[in-house]
Nucleic acid binder design. Structure first.
Length: 166
DNA sequence: GCCAACGTTGGC
DNA sequence: GCCAACGTTGGC
């Protein structure tokens, strides 16, 4: 089973917002990037685990877990001229953009900051788009080793490389 | 608020 | 098909 990391700006839609939704589930609309679209449309399966990431905020980082709760389907906001993410080039007979439903699972016991994850950019998280400078991909795959590494940080009060009192 | 990195658009 | 201009993302 493939894991994923999905970014959201907490001012727009936070993990708390997801937890407060009916069924704690929300259609993940508005993805307008082809690379993200392809992964979403072609590879996501119901039950895939998701790292929920807060971007563009005071402490960007992984804040919780979610899961894919539906098969991919066309994103209806692309057809709606009133919607922010309206795309006149997406036609219901040949949809250009897709979404899945995302369901809340739990908050992490602490936020795992991007700054901390970057410490592993040359190690356990080598090659992960998240830790590359200037990366804007809002959906990315997380393999099982990366998943285990990131969740392994949850229980640490401090990053490993900051040491502890003797 | 600044700005680097990147994706998309459109002229040619 | 190239590439400059532009707009957006997102860390800091």
């Amino acid at each position: 089973m493939n894991g994923w990391l999905m970014k959201s700006e907490p001012d727009t839609f936070s993990l708390d917002d997801l937890a407060a939704r009916p069924n704690q589930t929300e259609p993940w609309d508005g993805v307008r990037n082809y690379q993200a679209r392809n992964m979403l449309r072609d590879q996501m399966r119901v039950g895939d685990p998701i790292l929920f990431y807060h971007s563009n905020c005071a402490v960007p980082g992984v804040v919780g877990l979610a899961e894919v709760a539906s098969a991919p389907r066309p994103d209806p906001t692309a057809f709606d001229p009133e919607a922010r993410y309206f795309d006149p080039k997406s036609d219901p007979s040949r949809p250009r953009w897709y979404l899945v439903d995302v369901r809340y699972v739990r908050h992490l016991r602490r936020t795992i900051p991007l700054a901390e994850l970057k410490g592993a950019a040359k190690g356990a998280l080598e090659g992960m788009p998240l830790v590359r400078n200037g990366n804007r991909l809002s959906i990315m795959p997380v393999n099982s080793a990366q998943w285990a590494f990131i969740l392994g940080l949850e229980e640490l009060a401090q990053p490993l490389n900051q040491g502890v009192a003797p």
